[in-house]
Design a protein around this nucleic acid. Structure first.
Lengths: 210, 210
DNA sequence: CGCTTATGGATACTGATACTATCCATCACA
DNA sequence: TGTGATGGATAGTATCAGTATCCATAAGCG
């Protein structure tokens, strides 16, 4: 398969494929002559993955590259790979909340985690985001939402368990790693859109005409 | 309060505040003389909201503007305002999946919605994202995740109900609208980070050294 | 065999986004 | 009275995610 066909199959413009090749997201095709390369099924799969991460999950190109490199390395431990996927989903934060608000929120979040017996590293990127979000909700006067944090955690824990079970069925480590990464990232998009649909439907008959 | 103090209180640089004023995200302060304006509590609150949306929820500036305008208009019906918040969370999609994959995914999603009795407009932005995500997961060989779509929906429905209850306690319509919008958008960030923390903790003891 | 089209590779350009920086004529306040 | 902050306008910057252009070569067709 040459680049034109790869483009047709995946519906990605040729210049964009070239760009991904340049950036090292997509491995080069096998060269049969200085200006003739052939791409195979792995390229199609890889390209689909790249597009899903970029378009659906809005992961920046540089981060996609990092994730793919991590997936391709057989030596990196699984938890490291998961860490990368997590970092892809939590933007490098700039401090938002004031100090008092933050420490209060941090306390609540730490309590929650302790109460659930979750093993979470203090440096986990999602931890900072959660604390900032709680602080922001508080400072915006949305305490009623924050009050139910524990119930949120219940629901979240239930489908996280489900996800991990679903993914654990993968036989090889490589497949497991890929499933975990894809599941982590696209799972987020899945849940987010389900939530919006549920909201639309539940809110529809609740506030018909307000 | 002058702009310098507003900047100190909210920890947003003065040039950035000026930028938000220019863009119409933040209402102008009250002018006491041609180059002297005073900002009040509403400005502090508004600025905090803007920053939370931009930094925490990664909402683009133009979309924040749209949302705020919608919140400020007393005439726009609530479901319209919710729609705007939803659009803020679902990026304008470029078609990703091939046609066959998409119709298959669309069928499954439509079934799911019908089975749950959800009232969802066919034009709902989240619907397209969900379909694309299902199609993408399928094409990436992650059918095991898609298989549990219904269980996901269960969990999602449970906390969506919770959210809506929490938010319904607001007395005035304006407050309700603000809560719904903030809850929709920051709730997403909240759930996402909870999920990552749960994942980290559950996966930790599942795959200690793989 | 010749001619058009596609290709790989390199380099340059573009449009959008979110700020920053600079200016300048006031204005506040010590 | 002079030093610094302010409002408002305009211009500049960095990053990101592609697009566009060129060129020498290769493929496919008549």
């Amino acid at each position: 398969m040459r680049i034109g066909e790869l483009s047709k199959v995946t519906d990605v413009p040729v210049p964009t494929i070239k760009y991904y090749l340049r950036e090292g997201l997509l491995p080069a095709g096998e060269l049969s002559s200085p200006n003739q390369a052939s791409y195979g099924d792995t390229h199609v799969r890889r390209l689909r993955l790249i597009r899903a991460l970029i378009e659906l999950a809005q992961v920046p190109v540089a981060t996609v590259k990092e994730i793919l490199e991590s997936l391709d390395s057989d030596t990196e431990p699984l938890h490291e790979q998961i860490g990368r996927a997590h970092r892809a989903l939590t933007p490098t934060r700039r401090l938002t909340a004031t100090d008092e608000a933050r420490t209060a929120a941090a306390a609540q979040v730490t309590d929650l985690i302790a109460a659930r017996g979750w093993a979470v590293e203090p440096s986990a990127p999602a931890l900072a985001t959660l604390i900032d979000t709680v602080a922001a909700l508080r400072s915006l006067g949305q305490d009623s939402l924050v009050a139910h944090l524990d119930t949120y955690a219940d629901a979240v824990e239930s489908f996280t368990r489900l996800e991990i079970d679903a993914v654990t069925s993968n036989p090889t480590r490589d497949q497991l790693a890929e499933s975990v990464v894809i599941g982590t990232i696209l799972g987020e998009t899945l849940i987010a859109s389900l939530r919006l649909l549920a909201q639309e439907s539940i809110s529809a008959d609740r506030w018909k005409n307000r």
